[in-house]
């Protein structure tokens, strides 16, 4: 943003046109840069079109009659055909609302779990001095890199023995146990940036760690909590692998698993219905993006999360 203003002066003409010898390069340069600038905008707009075309085309196609999906490559919507949505909603064994609700339950549970457990762990790593702090912190960082595949088989066995397969528990309970080290890391970084004087003052006033955490740190770390909440929302809403493994009962299908069964039942051509439900599944993510863009972009830029 500051760089934007830094570029501006080159646009304004030289303040002293008296010296005619220097005039040609000064007037020549803005013309060239503004042309270059226009060219860059054309390029960027082209990139945006390329990047978003498939998604926009799908959204438009979902409102077209079935037969036109494969003949119309344009994105101008001249008919409004909501049938695909009603068809898609009722195409699978349960109305699509069931899957949306299931995904909402899993997502909400995951968000609450991550916020509670990760912020607690982060407070300990950032503010408490205890034995093995460096070791445990290093272990936490390493756990971020661990592929889920290494633990998924034993986890499956554990959850099967607990009778949790075909419940949402295998998807939600781990979040209450801070398994997403990314968020612990994010919150540790954030808490470290808060002035220590605040908790020291509270400590002198006789506050214990529980009070310092709940009444001082937590209210101050709202931006970090928002970032973690939005990322948890997007990741959980889109997560396919664990949901595919742990949920096999069609009544408990989450949205991604339900969309997958659309593909399997694709023998009859119902692409319009499938597109419609694809669009429905993406809407909450787009909404989250619109609401939390600030936190998202900042979160990616500071931690390199996806």
């Amino acid at each position: 943003m500051t760089t934007e203003t830094a570029d501006q002066p080159s646009l304004s003409p030289a303040p002293a046109p008296a010296s005619s010898r220097t005039a040609p390069p000064v007037t020549g340069k803005p013309a060239r840069t503004s042309l270059a600038r226009a060219g860059k905008h054309v390029l960027m707009v082209a990139m945006v079109v390329i990047a978003l075309y498939p998604v926009v085309w799908m959204a438009v196609s979902s409102l077209r009659p079935e037969g036109r999906i494969f003949t119309d490559t344009g994105i101008l919507l001249d008919t409004f055909n909501p049938e695909n949505y009603t068809n898609g909603w009722n195409a699978l064994s349960h109305p699509f609302g069931t899957y949306l609700l299931n995904s909402a339950i899993v997502t909400l549970g995951s968000i609450i779990g991550n916020l509670v457990s990760c912020s607690m762990a982060a407070y300990a790593f950032a503010r408490l001095s205890f034995r093995f702090r460096r070791t445990t912190f290093a272990i936490m960082l390493m756990s971020i890199m661990l592929p889920i595949h290494v633990v998924i088989v034993p986890q499956y066995v554990i959850f099967a023995q607990l009778g949790w397969i075909n419940t949402f528990l295998p998807l939600i309970v781990p979040k209450f146990l801070a398994v997403d080290g990314f968020f612990v890391f994010l919150m540790v970084q954030f808490i470290r940036g808060l002035p220590r004087e605040l908790d020291e003052a509270a400590r002198i006033d006789g506050a214990g760690h529980a009070r310092i955490f709940l009444q001082i740190i937590l209210p101050l770390m709202k931006p970090a909590l928002a970032t973690a909440a939005i990322f948890t929302f997007i990741w959980t809403w889109g997560d396919f692998f664990t949901q595919l493994v742990f949920v096999t009962d069609p009544a408990l299908y989450t949205v991604p698993v339900a969309l997958r069964s659309f593909v399997d039942a694709q023998s009859q051509s119902s692409y319009g219905a499938m597109f419609a439900m694809n669009v429905v599944s993406l809407l909450p993510v787009l909404l989250a993006f619109a609401v939390g863009q600030r936190y998202l972009i900042r979160g990616i830029a500071t931690t390199g999360m996806k």
Binding site: G238, P256, R260
Partner: peptide, 10 residues
């Protein structure tokens, strides 16, 4: 959006 099932289907 790219990691989602919906986009893979698309």
């Amino acid at each position: 959006l790219g990691g989602s099932v919906a986009i893979a289907v698309l």
